[in-house]
Amino acid sequence: MLKITDLVHSYGSHRVLGGVSLSVAEGELVSVVGPSGCGKSTLLRSIAGLIRPSGGRITLGGRPVERTPDDLAIVFQDYSRSLFPWMSAANNVALPLRRKGMDRRQRREAAMAALDQVGLADAGSKYPWEMSGGMQQRVSIARALAYRPSLLLMDEPFGSVDAQTREDLEDLVLNVCAHHGITILLITHDIDESVYVGDRVVVLTRSPAVVAADLVIGLGRTRDQIATRQLDAFVRLRAEVGRLVRGGHTGHTTESTSVLEKK
């Protein structure tokens, strides 16, 4: 549904994206990893139509992205700045639902349900500035989930939460992707996480970024925080992604080489 071809972007004379090509199928969850500052957030903003890339093509459902596509939600890396401090958490989550033509009660219910999903059932009336960073981050995740977008872009969405919550949220995202057919692009700097949640892991090079590798993670859809991470395949893939992020070349994992040859 999402197809990116030779995406180039420069801020002034500073070239950040050096020709990124990538496609994501409907209902797929693709993790994107890459070194800090390589242009991951820039990639995401281009997809969302928030910046106009210097070159290349992005199509969504066959149509080129010119302005912000309908039916898209973003969890911004800078989650605290993306919440509105004059509104309670519940109202923050409910606000975008106006676009869905829901009435006040429906919005309220959807917001409470989404907050419940991220473990904040009791925090709906709190204001963002009364919450910890991890709680704010979960509110912004809840806002995106409540919106039920067809494409969900997440920029390091679990960076500020504790380990246990993080695992819960990873499973929540997997669940949402499976049961609501949402296509997800998830940026992370956690290699382990990229493999655990991804149907595919896309590794970007240092800036100007290009796609260094595009690995299919053949671990199936039902994943388990403990069992999956112990699988030989998981351990191998994790090492592979780690090597690639560090700038090494593809090892001999059959899955990955086959993908690279296919491309």
């Binding site: 596509p69 973003i74 993306s82 975008p96």
Partner: peptide, 14 residues
Amino acid sequence: VDPLAKETLRSFGF
């Protein structure tokens, strides 16, 4: 006004 706050609403199609 924080540009990111505006972008957030824009990204939801407002």
